[in-house]
Design a protein around this nucleic acid. Structure first.
Lengths: 127, 127
DNA sequence: CTAGAACTTCGAGCGCGCTCGAAGTCAAGC
DNA sequence: GCTTGACTTCGAGCGCGCTCGAAGTTCTAG
């Protein structure tokens, strides 16, 4: 329980993000971190608030289906600095399109499921 | 090109459902079909309109993330007849809950992505 | 000094959902 | 009769995203 140091142990990050410590280490190995995660004298990882912010955002990318390879591409660009802003924006905008499409498809599928449920709800007609 | 016989070749079903012929055979092997797919004298599969309807619905279950094991469970129940109506309804209702939750999560993630995009769109502030 | 918990690295393994290739069969057209 | 092409079965393989276990280190408390 690090008191108020702003630095978080990996277990604390896991708790706050809903990821496992295994996944956090995996993400780091996979090159998804924006900046190298700093280490304490014990060689333990110490996450900053900025790290946590990024991890939170990356889980949103992941939960909308952006492949890890694309998240890495985004992180790679971000590490290169301001010059890549346009590329990062484009990546996000392209992803946005696919997310919107996914939402539409899910909603359509949900409607079909709801319709089926409504058929079951009428005791008479078999579904 | 089967003229108007109501019976469809696997390639035609693939075209209409967006699945591949490989996937269609895989689904059958996996026990996802409601009724056995009939065969022509050539041993080729011949799908009926009812088969197509079911396959269309099952892709909606799949596209909303219902695992194949659950689709099979549903199909198994359906094959058992009317007595299992309540179970099938419950399965769909349970799935519905998770779909709604997924939609909410995706929408929240989309909002975060949109916010990030809006930051990029302001030329000044770096994102 | 010792025990225990929390961390470390590394590489292997796994579950899911397809995806594919090999080898064979069948019907239709030339 | 022969070729072409769409189909068949079967089992192996694969890509993704973790997930896990082994073996070792370090800090903290008792």
């Amino acid at each position: 329980m690090t008191p108020h140091t702003e630095e978080l142990a990996i277990s604390e990050v896991a708790e706050r993000t809903g990821l496992t410590v295994h996944t956090l280490r995996y993400y780091e190995r996979a090159g998804l971190m924006l900046a190298p995660i700093q280490r304490a004298s014990s060689r333990h990882r110490t996450y900053t608030a900025a790290d946590l912010t990024w991890i939170t955002f990356l889980t949103k990318l992941r939960s909308t289906g952006l492949p890890i390879s694309q998240v890495r591409a985004y992180a790679d660009l971000a590490r290169l600095g301001d010059e890549t802003r346009a590329d990062r924006l484009e990546l996000l905008q392209r992803h946005r399109i696919t997310v919107v499409a996914q939402l539409a498809e899910m909603q359509a599928s949900l409607a079909a499921i709801d319709y089926k449920i409504s058929l079951y709800a009428r005791k008479d007609t078999p579904a």
